[in-house]
Design a protein around this nucleic acid. Structure first.
Length: 491
DNA sequence: GGTTAGGCGACCC
DNA sequence: TCGCCTAACC
């Protein structure tokens, strides 16, 4: 949803850019928007469950377009639902790689019932909408109205976890966020792990991302937002605006975490913040002047600020869940609205395709044909210790699937590490122990051409050869090669 | 003058 | 699903 009307207001400082200007840079990509656009080209097949890879090819075309121009993409996926957004998500379905059940598991018992009811109603409402569109599509089709049928198929298509998984199984660097991709991409940007973010979502601006490419087309042309240009904006003036003021203005105008007060849009929010400088003074002013403000509004506002600033994200370098920015010490204990810390959870770093496939399919209600036995390693530093590596059989694993929470591909981590010349991380070795037969070192496993390390092999190519000579030559082989590679469960 | 809600086309080929 | 446009409303 983002901040409605923000991008048009910033039109004067949105400058055209071609991604070749980012040569040599890492960029984080909001993968959901690509998947959604790509799925439009084959929505009929996706709805019917017919085999198709056009949506994946669409994404890979863009991945390879970036690579062609020497840009290194890191695909970022949404993870679990942020408790704060469950109600919002009730209204729209985004690609969730991790089950909303995750959230339920994270919450205290008193909250479980409520959340679960919302979750069930979400599923119910989504089911109805898709079913309706699907039914309409079939209806139109039987009447010979293929155009109308196609439109309905496009509305019925959903970016399921298994679709996202298909993309992960390509030769791409990726990070699955513990919660929101927006926060994750911002973290990668402000920690200098990427140089820019490619997205369609204006939320990246209040999140504090410094360089964002919007509306990137298939030729690599887009428009660029740079925070440093904010002072030059023409439509409304941001002279003297701090990051906090910009954020508070966006929250006042209505955002994913807090609905705006009636009649409050961007322009009014801007005027109020310009005059009063901070949200608490604005709210005080509003209380004295006009409307009655809901009793919990100020409290919710504070939470919204904290969610933008400190939402939990995954740091591929430390392999831990961290806050987007450092937390002040005086915030109390109940910070689960920032995304519960995955205590006692397991993060796996690679060899992750099998359990992830399981999870994705499980969410889709599909039957899992082969169930590999896996070693898993506790990953999060602050997690309650689990007794080292465990072998899991099916029933146990079934429960643990909800714990495969967030992870990055190994090559993404390497990329992130490279510029920092950090010392060797012992945990990096740990995370290679996931394939049962794979007890070698990281380097040994990276030369392994099994399906689970497919992404590694090609990504290594990508690093060694800067980019191929033309766009066309660099994707079809890759796509088909990996589409035809052995199934992840095989090993 | 600004916000809001609803309609419409683009996204994709 | 999104942004853009318009009309209705405050």
């Amino acid at each position: 949803m983002g901040i409605q009307g923000l991008l048009p207001l910033l039109k004067s400082i949105m400058l055209p850019i071609h991604i070749k200007e980012l040569e040599g840079s890492f960029v984080a990509v909001d993968t959901y928007s690509w998947l959604h656009k790509g799925a439009l080209s084959c929505s009929t097949q996706l709805c019917k469950g017919s085999p198709t890879s056009r949506h994946i090819e669409y994404c890979m075309h863009r991945v390879n377009l970036l690579r062609h121009y020497g840009v290194k993409p890191i695909l970022v996926f949404d993870g679990g639902l942020l408790p704060m957004k469950i109600e919002q998500e009730n209204k729209r379905a985004r690609c969730q790689l991790c089950s909303p059940i995750l959230c339920i598991l994270c919450l205290r018992f008193t909250e479980i019932l409520v959340v679960f009811q919302i979750f069930l109603s979400t599923i119910a409402s989504l089911g109805v909408t898709r079913k309706e569109n699907l039914a309409r599509a079939l209806d139109h089709e039987s009447n010979g109205n293929s155009t109308a049928a196609y439109e309905c198929y496009q509305k019925a298509v959903d970016i399921s976890p298994s679709i996202a998984l298909q993309l992960i199984q390509e030769n791409v660097s990726y990070v699955v966020a513990p919660y929101e991709a927006d926060a994750q991409m911002t973290f990668l940007a402000i920690s200098k792990q990427v140089d820019a973010v490619i997205t369609e979502d204006s939320d990246l601006i209040p999140f504090g991302c410094h360089r964002i490419i919007f509306k990137m087309d298939k030729y690599g042309q887009g428009v660029e937002f740079q925070r440093s240009r904010l002072q030059q904006n023409k439509d409304i003036s941001f002279a003297g605006f701090t990051n906090e003021m910009l954020l508070e203005m966006c929250i006042f105008s209505g955002c994913d975490y807090l609905q705006s007060l009636p009649g409050m849009g961007l322009k009014r929010a801007h005027a109020l913040i310009t005059k009063f400088k901070s949200y608490d003074k604005v709210i005080k002013h509003l209380r004295y002047s006009i409307v009655s403000i809901p009793p919990l509004y100020e409290e919710s506002f504070k939470k919204a600020i904290l969610t933008f600033r400190h939402q939990r994200v995954y740091d591929p370098i430390t392999e831990d869940i961290v806050h987007l920015s450092d937390m002040p010490g005086n915030l109390g204990n109940d910070l689960d609205f920032l995304g519960p810390y995955p205590s006692n959870r397991i993060c796996i770093a690679r060899g992750d395709l099998d359990p992830f496939t399981q999870m994705a399919f499980q969410l889709q209600g599909e039957t899992v044909s082969s169930v590999p036995v896996l070693n898993v390693t506790p990953k999060f530093k602050n997690s309650k210790p689990e007794s080292g590596k465990k072998k899991l059989d099916l029933p146990v694993q079934k429960n643990l699937l909800t714990k495969y929470f967030c992870f990055a591909s190994l090559e993404a981590k390497r990329n992130f590490r490279a510029p920092r010349s950090s010392p060797t991380s012992p945990s990096l070795v740990d995370c290679t122990s996931l394939s049962p037969q794979d007890n070698g070192s990281e380097e040994a496993s990276s030369s392994n051409t099994s399906s689970s390390s497919a992404s590694l092999v090609v990504s290594t190519d990508d690093r060694n050869t800067p980019h191929s000579n033309n766009v066309e030559s660099c994707f079809p082989d890759g796509v088909h090669k990996f589409m035809e590679s052995p199934s992840p469960g095989k090993d």
